[in-house]
Design a protein around this nucleic acid. Sequence first.
DNA 1: ATGAAAGCGCTAACAT
DNA 2: ATGTTAGCGCTTTCAT
Lengths: 334, 334
Amino acid sequence: MAAEKGLGLARVAAAAGVTVATVSNTINRPHLVAQSTRERILAVMTELDFVPNRAAATLRKGSARVIGLVVPEIVNPFYAAVTESVAVEAGEQGYALALCVSHDDPAVERRHFEMLAEHRAAGAIVVPLLATAERLTQLRMVGTHLVLIDRVENSHDSCAVVVDDVAGGRLAADHLLGRPDTRALTIVNGALTIPQCADRLAGTLQAVDTHSLVQYETESMSIEDGVAVGRMIAESGSPRDVFCTNDQLAFGVIRGLHEGGLDVPRDARVVGYGDLALATEGDVQITSVAQPKAEMGRAAVGHIISEIADGESHRHTTTVFVPELIVRSSAPAA
Amino acid sequence: MAAEKGLGLARVAAAAGVTVATVSNTINRPHLVAQSTRERILAVMTELDFVPNRAAATLRKGSARVIGLVVPEIVNPFYAAVTESVAVEAGEQGYALALCVSHDDPAVERRHFEMLAEHRAAGAIVVPLLATAERLTQLRMVGTHLVLIDRVENSHDSCAVVVDDVAGGRLAADHLLGRPDTRALTIVNGALTIPQCADRLAGTLQAVDTHSLVQYETESMSIEDGVAVGRMIAESGSPRDVFCTNDQLAFGVIRGLHEGGLDVPRDARVVGYGDLALATEGDVQITSVAQPKAEMGRAAVGHIISEIADGESHRHTTTVFVPELIVRSSAPAA
DNA sequence: ATGAAAGCGCTAACAT
DNA sequence: ATGTTAGCGCTTTCAT
């Protein structure tokens, strides 16, 4: 595997007594080559430690078997899971994965897109924190194939993989409202300018119906924020059936409630969102709305690959995943 | 940034009234080009939306500005942190990062190395779970530049970035033994066949000196394992100064001790290892030995780049990071 | 300071 | 089934 310089199809061809075309065919379209010839060539290739040069193929074909993945960060269990799944799936499909961490900095993001373009990447999967219009326009410049993993506005000019957060919110709320004597809900949310937060709230509103809803909005959706809100809930008359729009909040809220003297699930029920590792690390296992992170990554790679295969006839599609409620002790079944 | 086909140096050159050589120089060695010419060429490049083709450059130069990163998984805060830092650093140095997830499967790993070789990657950073000899031999086949992030045996034929786990173990033990009346320690470890575990124990042994040490060995170093051991410690006469060789264990041990009626840090002190997010997510903030994950990633990229720069004269070096103790409430200062 | 020209290794259309 | 050949777009040496 030494990638020896000067060792190309030509030398393999010479050693095998054929021409480069036949060697190229053994690699890319084996069916066009006679079995015996093929075997001889393969033998020579191993013999010489031949490693095909993808740069040459890319130059010739105009496109590399490379998929770019642009994420705001990896140190975040959700992105880590998506990244891992994209990496695995890309690898299995014979694509290299070019990982780009943007830290949500437009300048960095732009540099990454330029790099992907220079490499003639076959496509890019982007997990934007905020899929603003300007941003997307920029993204589209990369070239042909672009898949977004996120909630995308109606005007999507790309394929996308999204989670139905409205359904997720509804799922959580319905679960909490499932007990006959539950008349009201508390929701602990992040800023409503974040589409996911708005959607989860919308789903909740669908479910509350005639019931009432007390809303808390936190700044950073962190464990700390959750603790603070949990204490407030314990001290106030807020409903003790609490839907937190992420697991960090749920984790914190449970602690805050506890500090306020309330036991979960005896005195209060809590549902989280995301089904992160965190959900099962605390003293009480958290019921949570699970997003199919691995499937999302796989679907994204699938979109790119079929977009490539489709060619001209491609029509953009959006894969919508419906989240699933994982019931644990923080909010047991009714 | 449209990466339009057929648009290369040639067309830019024509439009600017120069030859390809001058355009190439404007990109790669601007100082060789007259200011006025350079500006004109730059203008034409933006005008035409020219995106240089790296595949061509790679083909010509024989090596790509690509660094491979091979990790067993990303869904693991330690690898996630290292990966993120490698990604950022590589990006800043103008390298693309080819991320490979091996799931510790030798076959998959091998495929990844082949891919990196085919792409003529400038180097690879490998975070092997087990740096067995066979494995390393295989790795070395990738080509020229290889950096390991891990504890490496003496016989290292590559650059490496390691953490001094003996020092780390000693750090933890010294801290626990810092209180005048502490005569003995408990260590909760993983399998001693794992070098890191063995080293952390070795460091502990350096510190215990005449004190005595009670050892627990767990199967998977998980939170669950920790809980079980924590209960055992509470019920037994094991020393209540406990060093856990990772944060998961520490997290679990604290819970187990608690279930056994012991308060941390009042009745028992616990030190973890790794300084993961987990360390600060529990009810009690965990004192932990921190590995400089980001610096490690940065150092690894640095090794590759200087190895490239050094050329022939390169001598392999190992960067050893000494971990640092982050004191929190689970084991306050004496 | 700029130009001319020879490939790097591969693919694919065309010919045999 | 296999051979011939023309580039893909770039870097770099050697001239000018």
